[in-house]
Amino acid sequence: MKACGVSATGVAETVLLSLPEPPPPGPGQVLIEVEAAGVGPWDQLLNTGGWDVGLRPPAALGVEGVGRVRAIGPDVQGISVGDRVVAHEAPLPGGSGFWAEQVLVTAAHTAPVPTALEPVEAAALPVIGLTAVQTLEALGLTTGQRLLITNGGGSTGALAIQLAATAGVEVTATASPSAAERLRECGAAEVVDYHDPAWPNRVQGGFDAAVIAAPGTAVIALPLVRDGGQLCSLTSDAPASERGITSTNLYVRPDAAQLTQLATGLAHGLLRLTPEALPLTEGPAALDRVAAGRTAGRKLVLVP
């Protein structure tokens, strides 16, 4: 089958591959015929060993995607062959990921795709959606509280803005000027230009919490959080706690129930994403674009 990933252990270069089909699904597993698969900065960690998801090279990258169920293993209930499902999977039970024509996943990590949701839209959702939901869940903010999000223009930040604003949280986001209007439409009360080195002085401090979605911004954001507030880093660089502030790193985990709610919200127009579909053959170039931050806030999605 066609795939895009790593050819051997210790080789970081992303290449096009021809792989054998995954093994038949075992207990609690399903085999998916992939229709679309998401690309994110985390995929760099997969092919450099920074995130161990059980890849067994030669293997496809990708920890999220959507497709039709092709085969079902023993002890799987509530899923039928032909169902369209979406999933975030880590570790990968088949040793290979979603950037391929087929992938083996844990049935309990899959969520049904609403009929109104196109595969490319669904494939853009799992990691950024679950990250946003789990971050806000960890912070536990309530109506009227104030939240700072760095890199609000990125796909994860923009989705977190939408979810937080819907919950009545007042959001200030850092982003480029070109993203400002889009983020205000997402619900941001204030958007500040991160290019301006004086931006921390241009916002009112005392935030109840900060979400760090841009590497290197945690130490800048921390002084803007009130005493006893919270900081949650999505970039593994949470600084030491001070002034009673809870400072933590968040690592996304599969959650079918949360993914089901997200997919339903997206299908009903309660959430909005801006995916960009590319053929699987452009996988290496897509990963380069993501690594360089050249996506203009769009979530890249590969289509086999």
Results as ranks from 00 to 15, higher is better:
residue 39 V to Y: 04
residue 31 L to N: 03
residue 201 N to W: 08
residue 160 A to L: 11
residue 159 L to F: 07
residue 35 E to C: 01
residue 159 L to W: 06
residue 175 A to G: 08
residue 52 D to S: 04
residue 293 G to P: 11
residue 170 E to A: 13
residue 26 G to T: 07
residue 165 A to H: 13
residue 208 D to R: 11
residue 117 L to I: 08
residue 16 L to A: 10
residue 248 T to F: 08
residue 175 A to V: 10
residue 284 P to K: 10
residue 155 S to A: 15
residue 211 V to M: 15
residue 270 L to K: 14
residue 169 V to P: 01
residue 250 L to S: 01
residue 98 F to A: 14
residue 18 S to T: 15
residue 121 E to T: 01
residue 56 R to P: 00
residue 26 G to E: 08
residue 225 V to T: 01
residue 174 T to D: 02
residue 63 V to H: 01
residue 118 E to A: 15
residue 92 L to Q: 05
residue 106 T to Q: 14
residue 183 L to F: 04
residue 34 V to F: 04
residue 258 Q to E: 12
residue 192 V to D: 06
residue 80 S to W: 00
residue 9 T to N: 10
residue 286 A to L: 07
residue 229 G to R: 09
residue 31 L to Q: 12
residue 292 A to K: 15
residue 160 A to N: 09
residue 37 A to K: 10
residue 136 L to F: 11
residue 255 D to T: 14
residue 8 A to D: 12
residue 266 L to V: 11
residue 102 Q to D: 08
residue 55 L to M: 06
residue 81 V to S: 06
residue 13 E to D: 15
residue 219 V to D: 14
residue 303 V to C: 15
residue 119 P to L: 02
residue 180 A to G: 04
residue 41 P to M: 11
residue 178 S to Y: 00
residue 6 V to P: 02
residue 119 P to T: 04
residue 113 V to G: 00
residue 114 P to V: 10
residue 212 I to H: 05
residue 242 E to P: 00
residue 210 A to L: 13
residue 90 A to H: 11
residue 139 L to S: 08
residue 14 T to K: 01
residue 251 Y to D: 07
residue 195 H to K: 14
residue 90 A to N: 08
residue 112 P to F: 08
residue 42 W to P: 00
residue 15 V to M: 10
residue 38 G to Y: 06
residue 140 G to R: 13
residue 112 P to Q: 07
residue 61 L to C: 05
residue 142 T to C: 11
residue 240 A to K: 12
residue 276 E to P: 00
residue 248 T to M: 09
residue 149 I to W: 13
residue 181 E to W: 01
residue 133 V to N: 05
residue 96 S to H: 05
residue 302 L to P: 02
residue 194 Y to Q: 10
residue 20 P to W: 12
residue 128 I to E: 06
residue 42 W to R: 09
residue 298 R to M: 01
residue 16 L to T: 04
residue 89 E to A: 13
